[in-house]
Nucleic acid binder design. Structure first.
Length: 575
RNA sequence: GUGCGUGUAGCUCAGUGGAUAGAGUACUUCACUCCGAAUGAAGGGGCCGUGGGUUCAAUUCCCACCACGCACACCA
């Protein structure tokens, strides 16, 4: 496909401007208002070099440019040179591109040969999967798909929180109050019950804490009884998590969690000692990061056991040594900003220059509204909304709507899952990831406006139009046999322009670790399609016109499906 | 207190060193004998937190302040 910015840059290039083609290309903007053209070149910056008023420069350039047949018009407004592309030319380029690339339209090879690890979701074993966990899970999955689409060799890690003193507590509590039967019945609920009971009872009986520490020490030492229990807790929890991952359509390449690295830490503690980075402070071993304004990174506790930072160091080195990543992305809440800064600084001080390739991708907090109060979620206090409940409610609401609308030829059970779950995922990916938000049932169950169902509906609508077309038309547009001059309308052209921009949006979204850029662009495309659909009748009598319009519908459908796929959402044909 | 982040329409949020700051939602209307109304169109609604600075040009960059959130050693 023609790179239109490059085309314009070539047209503008002149030695007297003192700018390279690439520099000119970088200066080209897309005007705020369509009436000002499709691309614009601002001349403010040239004023100094050329010693002329920017308005005059723009006027001069506009007067001499425009020879290429790709331009319908080149005009000057204020200090801008505005380019109007020939619509039919542009549209046939775009439509042809999408038609031939199909499901791979939007993808690129910018990351070919480079390995990218995405660590995401990473729930704590034995704790319920609540609405707060959806962020890392869904954002991480979208990032994986974005990097995959950019040609990177990707590897997905679920860094399970499957280790630590909490398991000492869990084992103590299970032995005191638990039973095999209730554990089998509803594992996470049972485990959570033990955990909360432990904390309640420990308030009156501090010796429980000591027992927990002892038990964890045994586990860490490899004691068979404790290990067996821990394994059971882990397996049962994982089975429940997998049910939710299944609903969300999410998979991982590795489930190596914290426990996997439990025996890999001594090497680094020794290394920190050798490199004179370790300092004793109040009985604990720390790396003093005061001079970097990062406080102290604790490496071992006063009882000698290890901590988060230490495990993360072991994990990072393991990954570097085994996967030799180009980039390792950690999709973890912004609450852990300090931890990641400390951890990166320690790696840097240890001499691991590749720590620069480790990227913390933070996201904002999800809280709950409790009347006028806003509370953070707390499993201990039972202040939680379970993700599975949210997904199920969204699905059943979708099923209700579908039955009400009585759409023919649809399997309500299947499609309501695609739409209901898609709605939840879409909602999660529609804002900048750094924003905090308060969970609201009303919002997550709203299917009007800029939502997943809106986009999916648009896709189903485009599918429906294509079903109504006859075979000969479909065969003709599959061959690219169309006359784009029938797509001269503003709405058809606006839609093509948005489709044209998708590949660069995907690259930028991956680059900025911001899936919402794709979500936003997808909404724009859906809006543009719906406007086109309303403004114009597609299945008209004139064959050439009908085929031109149908091919734009077909291309739109492909692009919407591709975008949804990047977000991890399916694109139903009917709903 | 220190560090990081956020502050744009009633609400939820996009956005950019430049041309008149945009969506959705809510509210008031209009459009299904017509390709799917989970749709489209029209209307009102804004000192872009406050005050300085840099710049030809600042809602955007820098500084200070205010409000809110998060973090700040034996949890992860």
């Amino acid at each position: 496909m023609t790179d239109f910015k490059e085309l314009i840059a070539n047209e503008l290039y002149d030695e007297s401007l003192g700018l390279e083609i690439d520099e000119i290309k970088g200066m080209i903007e897309i005007p705020a208002d369509e009436s000002m053209g499709d691309f614009a070149f601002p001349c403010f910056r040239l004023a100094k070099a050329l010693r002329k008023a920017p308005q005059q420069i723009a006027a001069d350039i506009a007067a001499s440019a425009g020879g290429n047949k790709a331009f319908a018009k080149v005009e000057n407004v204020n200090a801008y040179v505005n380019f109007f592309i020939d619509r039919a030319y542009f549209e046939s380029e775009v439509i042809n591109e999408v038609r031939t690339k199909g499901a791979s339209y939007g993808k690129s090879e910018v990351g070919a040969g480079k390995k990218v690890i995405v660590e995401y979701s990473s729930p704590n074993i034995a704790k319920p999967f609540h609405i707060g966990h959806i962020r890392s899970t869904v954002i991480g999955n979208a990032l994986y798909k974005l990097y995959d689409a950019c040609g990177y060799d990707t590897f997905r890690i679920n860094y399970l929180g499957d280790y630590g003193t909490q398991f000492g507590k869990m084992i103590v509590a299970y032995r005191k109050w638990g039973s095999e039967d209730e554990l089998k019945e509803e594992p996470i609920k049972a485990l959570l019950g033990y955990y909360t009971r432990f904390h309640k009872e420990a308030e009156n009986d501090p010796s429980l804490e000591d027992q927990a520490r002892e038990t964890f020490a045994k586990l860490e030492a490899g004691s068979p009884e404790e290990t067996e229990l821990w394994k059971k807790f882990r397996e049962l929890s994982l089975a429940e998590f997998n049910r939710v991952y299944g609903m969300l359509g999410i998979e991982f390449d590795s489930y190596n969690g914290e426990s996997f690295y439990s025996d890999k830490m001594p090497r680094f503690i020794q290394e920190l000692k050798d490199k004179k980075l370790l300092v004793e402070s109040q009985g604990a071993q720390i790396v003093d990061l005061e001079e970097y304004d990062l406080g102290a990174a604790m490496i071992t506790k006063s009882d000698g056991s290890s901590l988060y930072v230490t495990r993360d160091i072991a994990a990072a080195v393991y990954r570097k040594e085994n996967y030799n990543f180009y980039k390792c992305i950690y999709v973890v809440a912004s609450q852990q900003n300090l931890h990641f800064k400390q951890w990166k600084k320690v790696l840097e001080l240890m001499g691991y220059a590749w720590e620069e390739d480790c990227v913390h991708v933070p996201f904002g907090l999800v809280s709950l509204s409790d009347g006028d109060d806003i509370k953070t979620m707390s499993t201990r206090e039972g202040q939680v909304v379970f993700l599975e409940d949210v997904l199920n409610t969204a699905v059943s609401k979708t099923a209700d709507i579908m039955r009400e609308k009585n759409v023919q030829g649809v399997n309500v059970d299947e499609v309501s899952k695609e739409v209901g779950i898609g709605a939840v995922i879409f909602q999660e990916l529609s804002n900048n990831r750094i924003k905090d938000y308060v969970f609201s049932w009303d919002k997550v169950l709203n299917f009007d406006g800029e939502t997943g169902p809106y986009v999916q509906y648009t896709h189903a609508r485009a599918s429906s139009v294509l079903r109504n077309a006859d075979e000969a038309d479909l065969a003709a547009i599959a061959e690219g046999n169309i006359n784009a001059s029938y797509l001269a309308s503003d709405s058809a052209y606006a839609l093509c322009k948005l489709i044209y921009r998708l590949p660069e949006i995907v690259i930028e979204a991956a680059d900025k670790y911001e899936p919402s850029m794709v979500t936003r662009h997808l909404v724009d495309i859906a809006q543009a399609f719906n406007k086109f659909y309303h403004d114009e009748h597609i299945l008209v009598d004139d064959e050439e016109e009908r085929r031109a319009k149908l091919s734009l519908v077909a291309v739109s459908k492909t692009v919407i499906a591709n975008c949804l796929a990047l977000l991890g959402i399916s694109a139903p044909e009917r709903m």
